[in-house]
Computed example of a mutant assay.
Amino acid sequence: MNILVLVSGNGSNLQALIDAAKAGKLGPGSIVAVLSDRAGVYALERAKLAGIPVFTEVPNHNLAKDERRLELSNRILKICKACAIDLVIYAGFLSILKGDIIEAYAGRMINLHPALLPKFGGLGMYGERVHQAVIAAGEKESGCTVHLVDAGTDTGPILLQRKVPVLPGDTADSLAERIHHEEHIAIVEAAALMVKRFENKSWGII
């Protein structure tokens, strides 16, 4: 089972997946490529150190937003086909994909979001913004969600969630750090779950 991991930053969740694959926790799942929408991010170095081929596909900001997203999505879909990708994992990937890739990988594309969806999801809800919004809303708990990707933003069926308390005096940074630990667990659990679905030929069944 060929896995493509999409990244945009440091890549700590990618590292969790790489370590899990090496430890046999993903069964027949193999990370065969890592793709970033930003040049020079450390996640690419993590992949190179693990001997995994990397791609950098930067959005074309000369295009209008919708056209830019579609053009990037089509480039990524070509890579998916060339690498015979079975499963696509967003691991801190900030670009929004649309068009044919969503249909081609329906039930085979998952995203990790740093909040307990359906709360605090949607356009503009990423990174520090999510944690600031959680604290501002007075929430008593937060966490992370892994869900199937659909044509919306953070709207696909939920695979699993992990929770943490929001503590008095928390900042966006301190809450993020607590959630990061759970993200590393959640992304591996979700990837293993998707591999099992692949083996059982039950894509998209919740």
Rank of each mutant, 00 (worst) to 15 (best):
S36F: 04
Q161N: 05
I89N: 09
A47Y: 04
Q161H: 01
L72A: 01
S36C: 06
G138V: 11
L160C: 13
G124Y: 03
L14H: 10
D150Q: 06
A172N: 01
I52N: 11
M194Q: 15
A84H: 14
G138T: 08
I18C: 12
R38M: 01
R129G: 14
L17Q: 04
Q161S: 05
D173I: 11
K81V: 02
G24T: 04
S12Q: 05
A151Y: 11
I135Y: 11
K81Q: 13
I158M: 08
L112A: 07
S36R: 03
S8V: 00
L175W: 05
E183V: 02
I31H: 10
K201R: 15
N62T: 07
H181T: 14
P59Y: 00
A47S: 05
R129W: 12
I158Y: 09
P114D: 02
C83H: 15
N13H: 03
R69W: 08
L26E: 04
I185H: 11
I79A: 04
E177Q: 13
V164K: 07
I110G: 08
P114K: 00
K201N: 15
Y42H: 14
G169F: 12
V130L: 08
V164H: 02
V195Q: 12
R197I: 02
M125H: 01
L117D: 05
G40N: 10
A136I: 00
P118C: 00
G27D: 12
H181N: 07
S174I: 09
L44V: 03
A137L: 08
I101H: 01
G143I: 00
S8D: 06
A151N: 09
E57H: 09
V134F: 11
A16V: 09
K65W: 06
A39I: 02
K65N: 05
L167I: 14
G121H: 05
T56M: 04
L112E: 06
A190F: 13
F55P: 08
F120T: 00
I79T: 14
A84D: 14
Q15W: 01
D86W: 06
V54T: 15
V195M: 14
W203D: 02
S202V: 03
L17P: 11
G127P: 14
L148A: 07
I179H: 03
D173H: 09
G121I: 00
L35Y: 10
G107M: 10
D19H: 01
S30L: 05
S142F: 06
T155A: 09
W203A: 13
A172L: 00
Q132L: 11
C80P: 03
S174G: 08
H180Y: 08
L14P: 14
I76T: 07
G138N: 12
D66Y: 02
I52V: 10
P59C: 00
V164M: 01
R162W: 02
L160K: 13
G29T: 04
D150E: 10
E199H: 09
I179V: 15
H184R: 13
A91I: 05
L14S: 12
C83F: 14
N13R: 01
Q132V: 07
A16M: 07
R178D: 02
G204H: 12
S174Y: 06
G138H: 13
V164F: 09
R38V: 01
N62Y: 00
P165S: 05
T153Y: 15
K196Y: 13
V134W: 09
A21G: 14
H131M: 08
N60Q: 04
I18A: 09
E141L: 07
A21R: 12
V166E: 01
V164I: 03
A115N: 07
Q15G: 10
G169T: 06
D173M: 07
A20C: 04
